[in-house]
Each structure stands twice: as structure tokens, then as C-alpha cells.
């Protein structure tokens, strides 16, 4: 009986660790209308840098949180920028007529909610929190 309980405990801890690992995986997610769209590394870069402005026939609306771990990790690994550098990059484009700036929210939760309700919106989030969104690319 004790052995069975111990095995269950080990299994449970393992599952929790797996769940935590899944939760920590940042991903690029989008509005449900973008279902079926996938982005490779070049595509992610092109969309985030404003080179590619439509996805699935819809204008891309980049949605961001003011700060966020998943966001920082994803931006760093795909375009080599922190959230602050990314916002600076877009400020330059936006202030010179070169693009439409990301919409920025106080929290990742607000950003996800807006993305879920806005056609064409994309947002960087933990994949575990992407309910109501479609995953376009994992980290």
C-alpha cells in the first residue's frame, strides 16, 4: 500500500513538473480568426518587425503587455530585443509614418483578452494561458 502511494506521489510530482514546463513555454498566439496560420522563424520576425502587415487576409494588430516574462523571452529569442527595445523600435516606426504601433496593456491578461476579441490581433503569452486564442508559433 505504501509503495503504491509512493509511486502515485512520484507520478504526481512528475506531472506537476511537466505542467509547469508547459506553462513556462512562451508562444505567439492570435485571435481565433487566425486559426490555421502558422509562422516559421522568418515569419515571426517579419510580423513582429512590421515587415509583414497581414495574416490570413487580416491586418496584424500587435498586442503587448507593458512587461512580461514570456514576452521578454520570446522577443529575445526571435528578434534579439527586450520588450523595452522592441517598444523603442516601434516608436521609431510609428513616429515616422512607417507603421502601426503595438497596442500596450498593463498586464498580459489584459493583452490576451484584447487579442481574443480583436480580429488580426497577435500576442505573446505562455502557451498554457492561451485559452480562446490560436497558437501561431511556439518559442
Amino acid at each position: 500500500m505504501k509503495t503504491k502511494f509512493f509511486h502515485l506521489l512520484v507520478f504526481g510530482v512528475g506531472m506537476l513538473r511537466c505542467a509547469a514546463a508547459v506553462q513556462a513555454e512562451p508562444a505567439l498566439a492570435g485571435h481565433d480568426g487566425l486559426a490555421g496560420q502558422t509562422l516559421d522563424a522568418d515569419g515571426i520576425k517579419a510580423v513582429l518587425m512590421g515587415k509583414k502587415i497581414t495574416l490570413g487576409g487580416m491586418r496584424v494588430v500587435i498586442v503587448m503587455a507593458k512587461a512580461g516574462g514570456a514576452q521578454d523571452a520570446f522577443l529575445q529569442s526571435h528578434i534579439g530585443m527586450t520588450t523595452s527595445q522592441f517598444q523603442n523600435y516601434w516608436r521609431r516606426l510609428f513616429m515616422t509614418g512607417g507603421g502601426t504601433a503595438p497596442k500596450i496593456f498593463e498586464t498580459e491578461s489584459d493583452a490576451r483578452k484584447f487579442a481574443a476579441e480583436t480580429p488580426g490581433a497577435i500576442v505573446i503569452t505562455d502557451s498554457a494561458n492561451a485559452r480562446g486564442l490560436t497558437i501561431l508559433a511556439a518559442n
Binding site: V63, W90, A101, I104, F105, K113, E117
Partner: peptide, 14 residues
Amino acid sequence: SESPEITKSHPLKP
């Protein structure tokens, strides 16, 4: 429909 939080959006600035 949008929640009050969502209407706080602004380009590059909450």
C-alpha cells in the same frame, strides 16, 4: 464587447 480594462489600450502607452 470589451471590458473596461480593454478600453485602456493606446499605442505604446497604456
